[in-house]
Amino acid sequence: MSRLSVPCHVKGAVALQVGDMRTFQGRPGVVVIDVTFPSIEPFELQEITFKNYYTAFLTIRVRQHTSAHTPAKWMTCLRDCCLMPDPHSEDGAQEYVSLFKHQMLCDMTRVLELRLILRQPSPLWLSFTVEELQIYQQGPKSPSVTFPKWLSHPMPCEQSALLLEGLPDPSRVSSEVQQMWALTEMIRASHTSTRIGRFDVSYLFPLLGLHCPEQVRPHSPLCYRWMAVMT
């Protein structure tokens, strides 16, 4: 399925804290990030991708367009999704995360605005946020090529009955030939990522040197290059 990145505006993170920010000793445990979409009509959200940075739990609220008359409503579409199984340790702290439409609690059509509510109960971390936030909507479906029916299913009357005697069933032959063809195609399409791993030395290049002093550089064909290039 193709997806399209949605241009969005990520507002600065707002920390929620009880009491005066300047005098209070403890660190905030909740941070709110608003995401707006100023340059786009209400859209259907497909996927949210981000890199976590020490957020333990994530809640997402969404504001959806309902109709022209009623004001848009806020809904919770994800509640306390666990990003760090143990908030005191590094597990999941800097992982890349994708959240998909089907994981949400409500349907994600006509999205106007998103609000990410990040929570970190552990006091051990100096800060927490999410980075590299990307919102995707569903892209256009790839056009599927359809053949007219007569092309794939020839009419029975068109088959010549005269030639059938003593010959194998043409549909069977065609399916077998197709299978063979598929096999050869598969072999042709087999690209590999594995290197054959040949160790190659080329005499064309001079000595490698992180820091080779000039006086010890050899005169004759002592120079070579380790080639990490594989065939």
Partner: peptide, 19 residues
């Protein structure tokens, strides 16, 4: 590590590799 390897190379006047 590399720095240490490099400085050993320079001190001893030995190339990293030779035929």
């Amino acid at each position: 590590i590399l720095k240490s390897l490099n400085s050993m190379c320079t001190e001893l006047s030995i190339p990293l590799a030779r035929k």
